[in-house]
Design a binder for these strands. Structure first.
Lengths: 162, 162
DNA sequence: GATGAAACTGCTCCAAG
DNA sequence: CTTGGAGCAGTTTCATC
């Protein structure tokens, strides 16, 4: 997926990240373009898959007091089939927001959300009993959300200008 | 922010998370409602702040080979002023996508993105030299993205039905 | 790239049931 | 909650420069 973009494309992406429901005529105005070429650029950005879709941002604060937990996971063995089984199980769990494989001593790092610690523990027990290859885990409870970017940073978007 | 929602509101949120640019008449059709009450519900969801906004989802894969890193950070001291200084510094860094304060032995967990490992190291050096209270850090490089949810899971949305 | 226009679709509000 | 409709705004395509 190698695409060449100019400053205006990047500006459009930056605006659309934050204001996904902006009208196309207003977007054109903001990037100093008339609606027609702006519309063509947008079509292109969507067609090549740079824009995967649009979505509403739901306020986490409105969901009440949820517990957010990072979980380090270590597997029983490092066979390719064991990795695959664990990853498949994790992807099927609603509570798991993210799962990353890491280099070094930790096999996986998971971001898990649950209504309470008890619910989190039930999730862990379910995983342990599911014969999914989970040998050991470490729990780190989030006590404060310091930063949680909801958009690709400007500096990274600039790297598309090649 | 205590709001009482019914199944239709939740269904609307679920749809809007994935299809933020859906037309309001189509949304009404999908939840078996006529446009007018659907429009009023949507107004309400936005007004109470449950929907913070809308945004385009940009494909990470299109940004080329970026390096994603989790960084554990330990501070020199645990004075409230030191926490505040570090958190402010972190929020100002474009590379830091997320920063969480954790209970237990780890002060902070950061998710950092950079074009390369070298760029990441430059970021760390900058933080260390910025006299921001960072005493020790551990680096965990992401080798695989197993799961990265882009929406609040259904089960959590259900908890709004109180 | 810009512009203007035409045909269409969707939006927002209003009235009435 | 429903339907229907009016007036307006935004979308998409087209032809022209």
């Amino acid at each position: 997926m190698r695409v060449k973009l100019d400053d205006r494309d990047i500006q459009m992406l930056s605006i659309l990240q934050k204001e996904g429901r902006i009208t196309k005529t207003e977007l054109a105005r903001r990037v100093n373009l008339s609606p027609t070429p702006c519309w063509e650029r947008l079509q292109h950005l969507e067609k090549v898959g740079l824009i995967e879709g649009y979505g509403a941002r739901i306020a986490w604060s409105a969901l009440g007091s949820q517990t957010l937990v990072f979980m380090e996971a270590e597997l029983n063995s490092h066979l390719a089939s064991d990795f695959a089984r664990f990853e498949k199980a994790v992807q099927a769990q609603d509570e798991v927001l993210e799962c990353w494989a890491l280099g070094g001593g930790i096999d996986y790092l998971l971001k898990v959300v649950a209504p309470s610690i008890d619910d989190y523990q039930r999730f862990v027990d379910r995983m342990l009993n599911a014969d999914v290859g989970l040998r050991r885990y470490y729990t780190y409870i989030v006590t404060k959300r310091v930063k949680d970017a909801d958009a690709v940073p400007e500096t990274l978007l600039q790297s598309l200008k090649s």
